[in-house]
């Protein structure tokens, strides 16, 4: 297993669904060491990272977050967070939904306790539209929070 932290930003080119990619782009400018940054359109790609890394951080857009909490950090290992995560409506723009991927991981007996999920509030997902200014701003904030946490570790 790598001693690295692996960060994967999920997204698609559709409006606020670019949140996860934007966070990774921002993190790439911060010169973090011992961190692998990946952008993907397919949550299923997370499966290949679970065995190989000590820590996995997933970033994705989500609808339905309250206005006063546009960024939320969830621990997959935490049952309460998993319940919240399931209640958070995810946009089905990927080949297999995030929740399905973690269920698949458990079926395959892959570790998920070391996974942290950061979700950012998204509101518009029009095909090939730009990310909204609010979500763009939230992606910068989210990257700063993640960078701070990763640097402290």
């Amino acid at each position: 297993m790598n001693s690295q932290t692996c960060l994967i930003g999920l997204g698609s080119p559709h409006g606020d669904d670019q949140f996860g990619w934007a966070v990774i782009d921002r993190l790439a400018t911060m010169g973090l060491s011992h961190v692998t940054l990946t952008k993907s359109e397919h949550p299923v790609d997370i499966l290949g990272m679970l065995d190989a890394n000590e820590r996995v951080i997933v970033v994705d857009a989500a609808e339905g977050l309250p206005p006063d909490e546009p960024i939320r950090k969830l621990q997959i290992a935490n049952a309460i967070d998993i319940r919240i995560f399931r209640e958070t409506p995810h946009r089905g723009t990927h080949d297999m939904g995030l929740e399905s991927v973690f269920r698949l991981a458990r079926s395959l007996k892959k570790p998920t306790d070391h996974v942290t999920l950061w979700v950012g509030k998204g509101e518009q997902f029009e095909p090939f539209s730009l990310m909204s200014a609010t979500t763009q701003s939230n992606s910068v904030r989210c990257a700063e929070l993640i960078a701070s946490e990763v640097s402290d570790a």
Binding site: L47, S100, R103, L104, S107, L108
Partner: peptide, 18 residues
Amino acid sequence: SGIELAERFPDQINTGLR
């Protein structure tokens, strides 16, 4: 789903993912 299949054939699914 693939999740159900993974419970029955974890080795094959892990091979596919690799």
